[in-house]
Design a binder for these strands. Structure first.
Lengths: 196, 196
DNA sequence: GTCTATATCTAGATAGAC
DNA sequence: GTCTATCTAGATATAGAC
């Protein structure tokens, strides 16, 4: 279907250059059609953008749902590790989705309707809560020291966000290797072993 | 001087809306002049942008130089903590600089000359090396477990970048408080105390 | 659904008076 | 250095034939 091909091309361009710098004419050319034909599939540029937002949001949700399901019943630290790797690898393998999502999250287009982003933000809160619960369980099981679990969850997401930002910024890095090294540095940091 | 006022206004707009979505007419209006007057101070829009890039790069360098100087002679973990707080607080107090810098780093304008970003990237490598050296020293002093110091430095920057991304995304958060909590979660993570 | 042709608008940039 | 007036290019979007 042409509508899908258009979305596919547009996702790549929006991810690379951003919403404002991407021209419909370029989307059309790369799709192999003429510019006005786009309007047979989407009412306008912003509606095309929002259709992609919807897809990427669903993909993001599915990624997390899968990771959470796979990790259930593991001990808390292994659970968090598996999720970190699953989400990380998912986006290493689809950089366009990653750039699009991070752009949307940090710097959405000025005239982009707030409602379009709400579902994404609601989902973010849901997974923040779920990760908090995992830390809670980990504290209960004496896997983690008794700190605030929601603060630990914030730190976890900082690490994940920072990691994904670096995947965008340094695409030539061997991130399949780096992801485990970064995770280890995060998890096995030692000063507490001096009993302080 | 008018040129400085223009840069000040433009920095804010570029940070909020991005390069492409910011119109010279809006910069002019908010500066209190008419659009063509801008060309008396800058040859064009991109040159105005690059002038700001230069300023923001210098500010970034100065921020790190200060932090490194202040922290010298401290033990490695305290050194890294001081730097984390110093850089974090610097950008909490100038959100426009932060947004502009992160935008530039992750998603520079398509037609932005590569050379303009090179100095920023070179400086990034320099500070990555310096942080690596601090971890190295920390390992030598038995403050850290003997892992790869450059991997630990990568993890450190992931944490910092992720933290700064969240400052952009959730501006209403009390980040002066959050910064110490996130740092603690990063530094005092406990599973190693189970001796594994 | 796709095209050609066109409308409409707004952006960056320039000319030239003051 | 600032202004008014204008140019030009490229953008989104529409009309209407096929």
């Amino acid at each position: 279907m042409t509508a899908q091909k258009i979305q596919q091309v547009a996702l790549k361009l929006f991810a690379e250059k951003g919403y404002d710098a991407t021209a419909l004419s370029e989307i059309a050319t790369k799709t192999g059609i003429k510019k006005p034909s786009i309007y047979a599939h989407f009412p306008g540029k912003m509606e095309l953008f929002l259709a992609i937002v919807k897809n990427i949001s669903h993909d993001y949700q599915a990624c997390w749902t899968d990771a959470l399901e796979q990790s259930v019943n593991l001990p808390a630290d292994k659970q968090l590790e598996l999720i970190f790797f699953a989400v990380g690898n998912h986006y290493i393998n689809s950089r366009d989705k990653l750039s699009f999502l991070v752009r949307l999250w940090l710097f959405p287009p000025a005239d982009c309707a707030t409602e379009a982003l709400d579902s994404l933000h609601r989902h973010n809160e849901v997974i923040l809560n779920k990760v908090t619960v995992i830390f809670q369980q980990g504290i209960k099981d004496k896997i983690f020291a008794p700190q605030s679990p929601s603060d630990m969850a914030q730190a976890y997401f900082c690490m994940l966000d920072g990691y994904l930002a670096r995947v965008i910024r340094y695409p030539n890095f061997d991130y399949k290797r780096a992801i485990s090294l970064i995770w280890q540095s995060f998890m096995f940091n030692p000063p507490i072993c001096n009993n302080n």
